[in-house]
C-alpha cells in the first residue's frame, strides 16, 4: 500500500486541464456538465489516456508507470464486467492477475461479494445480474485488489432510482472504510452532497471550484452546479448572485421600485415542480422562478410570453466570482 496524498496537475489534450490534491481517506466528487472532462481526468489518472503534467501519489510518480502498475481501481461507466466470467471470477481477476493463487483469489473475492451482500450470486455471469447487482460486482472487483486510489465513473448512471438510493448508502459505507484517495465522478448533486468530503467542479475542461459540498452548494460558481442544487446564478461584475427560484417574483409589468435585481425575457418552459409551477425564463442568463399554480393561471403564463422577474436583495447571497 502506497497510500498517500494525491497531487495532480494533469493535461489531456483538448479534454481537460486540472490541478487538485486529495488526502488519503478523502472522497473527492468530480462534477460538471457533459464534456467537462470528468471521465478524461479519471482515465488520465488510471493511465488509459495520454496525459502530461504530473500526478504524484505519496512518493510515486503515477505518470511514469504503466496502467497495470498504478494500483488504481477504476469502476467504469457501464461496469465492463468480463461477460465470459462469473461474478466471482470477475472479482478474483485482479488478484489472479497479480499472482495470487486461484484458491486465495477466490476466497478474497467471495469475501468481497459477501460485503456487498451478493455472495449468493457468485456463480452468475454478468448478463444474469440486474443493474444494481452488476454495479456491486464492478465496485467489488475494483476494491478487491486493494488499490491505492479508487476511481468511480458515474457509478449510479442507468440504475433505477430506488436501486440508486440503496447502492449510494452502501457505497458510502465502503468509501468510509477505504483508506486511499477516492474520486467519484457524478452528475448528481445528491452523490456529491452525501458521499463526498470535497467537491471538484469542472467546467469546459478546467477546475471552476473546489470546496466542501455545503459550500459549493451554497455558493456555486458555475451555472451547471447552480442548476444541480436548484439555484439561480447571475454574474454581476466580479460578484456572483445566487438565489432560489421561490424567491423570484413574476410579473407582466415592469416591477416598481429602484431594485436592480430585475430581468426580462420570454418563458421557455413551464412545468409542475412539487406543489409549485416552475418557469424557465430566457433572460440573460436563463432563470428559474417558482410560483403557485393559481398565480400562474391568473397571470396567463404560457411558453413564449414575455415576463419580468425580480427578487429581493435579502433573498440573494453575494460572493466573489474568484476566490
Amino acid at each position: 500500500m502506497r497510500a498517500g496524498r494525491l497531487v495532480a496537475d494533469l493535461q489531456v489534450a483538448g479534454r481537460v486541464e486540472a490541478g487538485f490534491t486529495a488526502e488519503p481517506g478523502e472522497v473527492l466528487a468530480v462534477i460538471g456538465p457533459n464534456g467537462a472532462g470528468k471521465s478524461s481526468l479519471l482515465h488520465a489518472i488510471a493511465g488509459l489516456v495520454d496525459a502530461t503534467g504530473r500526478a504524484r501519489l505519496g512518493d510515486t510518480d503515477l505518470l511514469a508507470l504503466p496502467v497495470r502498475e498504478r494500483r488504481v481501481g477504476l469502476v467504469f461507466q457501464g461496469q465492463l464486467l468480463f461477460p465470459h466470467l462469473t461474478a466471482l471470477d470477475n472479482v478474483a481477476f485482479g488478484l489472479r492477475a497479480r499472482g495470487a493463487s486461484r484458491a486465495e483469489s477466490e476466497a478474497v473475492a467471495r469475501d468481497w461479494l459477501e460485503r456487498f451482500g451478493i455472495a449468493d450470486l457468485a456463480g452468475r455471469r454478468p448478463r444474469e445480474l440486474s443493474g444494481g447487482q452488476a454495479q456491486r460486482v464492478a465496485i467489488a472487483r475494483a476494491l478487491a485488489t486493494g488499490p491505492d486510489v479508487l476511481l468511480l465513473d458515474e457509478p449510479f448512471t442507468g440504475l433505477d432510482v430506488s436501486v440508486q438510493m440503496a447502492l449510494r448508502m452502501e457505497l458510502g459505507r465502503h468509501l468510509r472504510d477505504f483508506p486511499g484517495v477516492a474520486l467519484l465522478v457524478t452528475h448528481d448533486a445528491i452523490d456529491a452532497l452525501t458521499l463526498a468530503d470535497r467537491v471538484l467542479v469542472l467546467d469546459g475542461g478546467r477546475v471552476a471550484q473546489v470546496g466542501p459540498p455545503a459550500e459549493v452548494a451554497a455558493e456555486p460558481r458555475t451555472s451547471h452546479v447552480a442548476r444541480l442544487v436548484g439555484l439561480n446564478l447571475v454574474a454581476d461584475g466580479d460578484t456572483l448572485l445566487a438565489f432560489p427560484p421561490d424567491a423570484v417574483v413574476v410579473s407582466l409589468q415592469e416591477p416598481e421600485g429602484s431594485t436592480r435585481l430585475r430581468w426580462r425575457g420570454p418563458i421557455a418552459t413551464l412545468a409542475p415542480h412539487g406543489d409549485a409551477v416552475r418557469l424557465m425564463v430566457h433572460a440573460s442568463p436563463d432563470l428559474l422562478a417558482d410560483l403557485t399554480p393559481a398565480a400562474a393561471t391568473e397571470l396567463g403564463l404560457v411558453p413564449g410570453r414575455e415576463v419580468w422577474l425580480s427578487t429581493k436583495a435579502t433573498a440573494v447571497s453575494r460572493y466573489p466570482a474568484r476566490r
Partner: peptide, 29 residues
C-alpha cells in the same frame, strides 16, 4: 471484441499476455 475490456483488465493489474489469454481471446472465441 470491445477493447475497453482490455483496458479494464490492465487497471486490474493484468499484463498484456494475461489479458490476451483470459479476456481478449475468450471474448472472441
Amino acid at each position: 471484441a470491445d477493447p475497453r475490456y482490455d483496458a479494464a483488465a490492465a487497471t486490474l493489474g493484468a499484463t498484456r499476455w494475461t489479458t490476451f489469454r483470459r479476456v481478449t481471446v475468450p471474448l472472441a472465441l
